[in-house]
Amino acid sequence: MNYRTKTSTLIFGLASFATAIVFFNGCKSPTENKAITKTAEAKENLADAKETLDKAKKEYVLRYEAFKLESDSKIAENEKIIAELKKKAKMESNAAKEDFEKELAVLEQKNQSLKEKMSYYKDEGDDKWESFKLEFDRDMDNLGKALKDLTKNNTN
């Protein structure tokens, strides 16, 4: 055989092989085609779910950070009010001073406890976060009211 014949035979053989592969791959059963489609859909759904989860986590972190900043600000404001009340209490010389200082110490401890509670909070999911946030807000509001009441009672 000459060179052209060998080359032609080789090309014909490769073309026949490629045709056979295409033909046999095209002849997959409907079950195989459904399985391939379902696998592709599952992969797409998984990717969508991961994207949604990532987005939800980012939103949760942003809400948490905003709440923490707001709470830290309120705690710092309470610390400022407590410091001012302590200065006023030192200038007083009446019998009510001792009771006032005791109440002030209790409120200062509550403020410190809220500060620690916020700093030690660990992510335990959205449901626990909502519960924590409601309880924390309630405690913060009660402390704020108690400080206002103490201020009113001290100025009377």
Rank of each mutant, 00 (worst) to 15 (best):
K102H: 02
F67I: 03
E98Q: 14
E101L: 12
K110G: 01
F67K: 03
A96Q: 09
Y64S: 05
S119K: 07
A76V: 15
A83H: 13
Y60E: 14
K90L: 09
K57D: 14
M118W: 02
E59H: 08
W129S: 05
K117Y: 00
K87R: 13
K117M: 02
K80N: 09
E84G: 10
A96W: 06
K117R: 06
E59T: 13
E59C: 09
N94K: 07
L114R: 03
E84I: 11
A56K: 13
L104N: 04
M118I: 11
K122E: 12
D127M: 14
K74T: 10
F67T: 02
K122H: 12
K128D: 09
E103P: 01
E98K: 12
E84P: 04
K68G: 13
L107D: 01
E84Q: 13
E116C: 03
A96V: 08
K117C: 01
E70T: 09
L107E: 02
N78V: 01
A56G: 06
E116G: 04
E77N: 12
A83E: 13
E98Y: 11
I75M: 03
K102R: 07
S93N: 12
A95H: 15
Y121E: 05
E108L: 01
L107A: 00
A89D: 06
S71D: 02
Q109S: 08
E108A: 09
N111M: 02
E59L: 11
Y120C: 00
D126P: 04
K122W: 04
A76S: 15
K102Y: 07
A56P: 04
M91C: 07
K86N: 08
A56C: 06
D126R: 15
L114V: 03
I82N: 06
F100T: 05
I81D: 03
